[in-house]
Simulated assay, not measured.
Amino acid sequence: MTQPHRRPDLEPMKTNDSATFLAGTALWAVAAIVLLIVQPSPDQRWWLWTCLAGIAGGLFGLFYVRRRNRRAPTPPSDPRWSRAPPSRPTPRTSSDGLTGLPGGTANAFVGCA
């Protein structure tokens, strides 16, 4: 029984998790400031506590992501993104000593006349 062709695994997508947590924490802080200005009724004070919990969760997430990034091993460098100049391929030589197309350049002009 033949097995179907399996595609190679994709590389994980690189994201800026710190910016995500900072943006979310900032939004929770803005919501908390708005609620402090508006002063909701006493039975709606849980909204403010929800914002404070969101700020606390965002700060914890920011701490966690930065700690994870510090401890993560450095990934191997990808040769496609290296700053080294690309190596030049050596030209092929044909049987008649001419470089370029296999069989010499004379074969490229056969039938062109």
Rank of each mutant, 00 (worst) to 15 (best):
P73K: 06
T25C: 05
F60T: 08
P40S: 04
T2F: 09
A113L: 03
D96N: 14
R83V: 03
P12H: 00
L59S: 01
P91L: 09
G24F: 00
S41A: 12
P42L: 12
N107A: 15
S18M: 02
A84H: 10
P86I: 13
A31L: 15
L48Y: 05
V30N: 10
V30M: 07
L62D: 05
G100I: 09
D17S: 11
S82I: 05
W81K: 11
P89H: 02
T99E: 09
P76D: 09
G97P: 08
P73R: 10
T25A: 09
K14Q: 15
L35R: 02
L10M: 07
V110G: 03
P85N: 07
G111S: 01
R80F: 05
R7N: 05
I33N: 05
C51A: 15
R66E: 14
P12M: 02
L48M: 13
W47G: 05
P4Q: 06
G111H: 01
P75L: 11
W49M: 09
G57H: 06
R68F: 09
S18P: 02
L59R: 01
G24T: 07
R71I: 03
T74K: 11
T74Y: 02
L59W: 07
G97C: 02
P79R: 05
A19R: 14
R7F: 09
Q44R: 13
C112E: 13
P79C: 02
W81F: 14
L52R: 07
P85I: 04
L36V: 01
N16K: 09
W49G: 11
R45L: 14
L27V: 06
L101V: 01
S87L: 13
G61R: 06
Q39T: 07
V34Y: 06
T93E: 10
R80A: 15
L62A: 06
A72V: 00
A53G: 13
G58K: 03
A26H: 06
T2R: 11
D17F: 07
D78Y: 00
T105I: 08
Q44F: 06
Q39E: 10
W49Q: 12
T105E: 14
W49L: 12
S94L: 05
T25Q: 10
S95N: 14
T105G: 06
L101G: 03
L59Y: 03
R45Y: 01
G100A: 04
V110W: 08
G54H: 04
S87H: 10
Y64F: 12
C112T: 10
N16V: 03
M1K: 11
R66Y: 07
V30I: 10
M13T: 15
A106C: 03
D17Q: 14
I55D: 05
T20C: 02
F60N: 09
H5K: 12
V65W: 04
S18W: 00
